[in-house]
């Protein structure tokens, strides 16, 4: 789901890099010392989970945990996602370096959507956690599909949507399970 180098015009990529760096700065500002290990461990988890591959139809999909990142870390999820994507790009060539900003913004949109959902009042927290996971992966997939449609590239929106809806449902269920676990063992993590 990551965009590779050479697909987007250089101007858009560089503008997105600047926007992503600004968001990373905003997300990493006034970082407390005790937050760093949690964020680092979650980034490592995100790095590995994103490499899980499920064959689905003619293509393959993977979990993202961007929704869970937004739920647990809010705006702090952006630097986490940035670091994860940077290492995926450097080690696995998943997504390009020049388009790292675009990938951070698209994947980060999932985390920010989840953060927004998590802040909604008067809704059952389990329902919210499901939609955090569901939209946390579906929103980035849709955004990338829109980019591909605008560029008249690849297999387009309908294809990506059809592929990622079941993945989003799995991720939603997984997020509910992780929410339930954290709610039992350490509820203060779920602000």
């Amino acid at each position: 789901m990551h965009i590779a180098d050479g697909i987007l015009p250089a101007g858009i990529s560089i503008a997105a890099d600047a926007a992503a760096l600004a968001l990373v700065y905003a997300g990493g500002r006034k970082l407390e010392t005790e937050e760093i290990p949690k964020m680092g461990i979650f980034a490592a988890a995100l790095f590995i989970v994103s490499l899980i591959h499920f064959p689905l139809g003619a293509t393959s999909i993977h979990l993202g945990l961007y929704g869970l990142a937004g739920l647990l870390f809010g705006l702090r999820a952006i630097p986490i996602i940035f670091v994860t994507l940077l290492f995926q790009s450097l080690i696995f060539q998943h997504g390009g370096l020049v388009v790292l900003g675009v990938n951070t913004l698209t994947m980060g949109s999932g985390a920010l959507t989840a953060w927004g959902i998590w802040k909604l009042p008067r809704i059952n927290r389990q329902v919210k956690s499901f939609f955090c996971g569901f939209l946390g992966i579906l929103v980035p997939a849709m955004l990338i599909a829109v980019i591909f449609v605008l560029l008249e590239y690849g297999k387009g929106m309908a294809f990506i949507a059809s592929v990622y809806v079941p993945a989003a449902a799995i991720e939603g269920a997984l997020t509910v399970a992780i929410y339930n676990y954290f709610n039992k063992v350490k509820p203060e993590l779920l602000k």
Binding site: A45, I48, S50, L51, I52, H53, S60, H62, F92, H94
Partner: peptide, 8 residues
Amino acid sequence: TSLVFGHG
């Protein structure tokens, strides 16, 4: 998750 294979 380290045991599961990724894509590329």
